[in-house]
Amino acid sequence: MMVQANISSLQSSPFVLNSPSSHPSLRQLLNFSAGKAERRKLRFSCRSSREQEGEYLLDAPVSVGDGFSFSGGKYSDEPSPSDEWFKKGKMVKAHPVNGIGKKAKDPIFGLTMGAGSQASSDVFRWFCVESGNADNPSVILIHGFPSQAYSYRKALPVLSKEYHAIAFDWLGFGFSDKPQPGYGFDYTLDEYVLALESLIGQLVRDKVSLVVQGYFAPIVVKYASNHQEKLNDLILLNPPLVENHAELPSTLSIFSNFLLGEIFSQDPLRASDKPLTSCGPYKMKEVDAMVYRRPYLTSGSSGFALTAITRAMRKELKTYTKEMRMILSNENWKVRTTVCWGQRDNWLGYDGVDDFCKHSSHKVVELAMAGHHVQEDSGEELGQLITSILSKP
């Protein structure tokens, strides 16, 4: 029933799904969702930039974007806020690709994906935005799941006054590479730890402070436990800190379901808008929504990466959160750690957080008006708070 409800919304959505119209699985899917009279409202095109090789692509030309949405939406070549954000950053190469030397294929139809959905062949590309003087102490801002470096846009200008602030997109998000699972990166949490180590090695040479939000916190803490000598401060924003935080909310766990995960992750409203707005008081402006939706409308790989990450999180999050608690409460942990908590978090409850921090001698700072995505709800306030927390050189 849920599949039919989402597919049927195609009838009123003006978009082009670029795929071989003769492909039986796609035809069956459409027959299942709409009658003959309503199917003629859909517009399809069969395009391939490699027809000379007899290989069809589930993609539009690179100039248009190769994404698709099962519930509406279409990428436009017109100027957008995402273009302005992209101009502020740069691509950094870090972490070797453990690939198989073949073009990635989508997991639904098995069709080779276009250039926009192919990751690097040697070293992954990460999108990074830097602000402030590079001679100042460095602080790296790490977004949560699912989000982008864009979420720190309000905090960056504040931090740049005294620090060299850097925000980046994780692999699978934003403008960074989004490899298909099995084609160089499988999105396991262990892989993310190693990838983070490679990236930080490229970004900074001296000591650094780390700020991380949400469900990526256990990954960052595990990295930090192996590199305490490199860290000045660690700031955790609404991390899954206690035992009952180890399960993903239904808004995210839906992407791990068989088939439904692949379908729903291609819907920018489900993959982007809903996770960002359902976990707290955040009211997304359309200008910001256009930035967050862009990856899902320009490349099908964004949604497939989201599905892979969610499945890895569901499988490994309990182990990682338990390990994070052990690390932070261990007497050998020497990094000054602060937990900042948005009290209007609809995903993670505050019960037990204060007790854990007191027992582990970590400072807790509460933000009354913020939710799970603290940097969205209280970005400038967070920037000022981070500035007050970080160790002065």
Rank of each mutant, 00 (worst) to 15 (best):
V220F: 01
Y187H: 10
S176D: 01
L237M: 13
L241T: 02
P179R: 04
L203S: 08
V212R: 02
D186S: 09
L248I: 00
P239H: 13
A224C: 14
P157V: 06
G182T: 12
P239R: 11
E247A: 10
H164C: 12
P240N: 09
L203H: 06
P239Q: 10
D233P: 01
Y150V: 06
P218R: 05
R205T: 15
I235D: 08
S209W: 11
V158D: 05
G182K: 04
Y223M: 08
A155K: 06
Y192V: 02
P240Q: 09
R205F: 05
E247G: 08
E197S: 15
N238T: 12
L189W: 06
D169S: 02
N232C: 04
Y152H: 14
S225H: 12
V221Y: 00
E243V: 11
P239I: 10
F185W: 09
K222M: 09
L203R: 09
L248A: 02
P157K: 07
Y163M: 07
Y183Q: 03
H245D: 12
P239W: 05
K178F: 04
Y187E: 08
D169R: 01
H245S: 09
L210W: 00
V211D: 03
E229Y: 14
L241M: 11
S160E: 11
E247K: 12
L234R: 05
F175M: 01
N244M: 10
A195D: 12
A224M: 04
K207W: 03
D177N: 07
H227N: 15
Y223P: 15
I219D: 10
L171V: 09
L156Q: 13
L171T: 11
K207Y: 00
L189H: 13
L194Y: 07
S225K: 14
E243G: 04
P181S: 09
V158S: 08
I166S: 05
L234P: 01
A246K: 11
H164Q: 07
H227D: 14
V193N: 07
L248H: 12
S198I: 02
Q180L: 08
Y150Q: 09
K178Y: 07
D190Q: 10
K222F: 03
N226P: 04
Y215P: 10
F185D: 06
Y163F: 14
Y183I: 07
E162Q: 12
D186Y: 13
D177P: 02
L210H: 00
Y215F: 13
K222Q: 14
E197A: 15
P157D: 07
G174R: 04
I200D: 06
F173H: 10
L189S: 10
P240M: 07
E162S: 15
N232F: 00
V193I: 15
I166L: 14
Q228R: 08
L194W: 08
G182H: 08
A217G: 15
L156K: 02
Y183A: 11
K222C: 07
N226E: 14
D206N: 13
G214W: 04
V211C: 04
V220A: 01
K154Q: 13
S209F: 01
V220I: 15
P239C: 13
V221L: 02
Y183F: 13
L210P: 00
Y192T: 03
I219S: 09
Y150L: 06
E191P: 11
A165Y: 06
E247F: 04
S151M: 14
Y192I: 03
L241Q: 01
E243K: 13
S151N: 04
L199N: 04
D233Y: 01
F168I: 03
L210T: 02
Y223F: 15
A246D: 15
L248F: 02
K230H: 11
A155D: 01
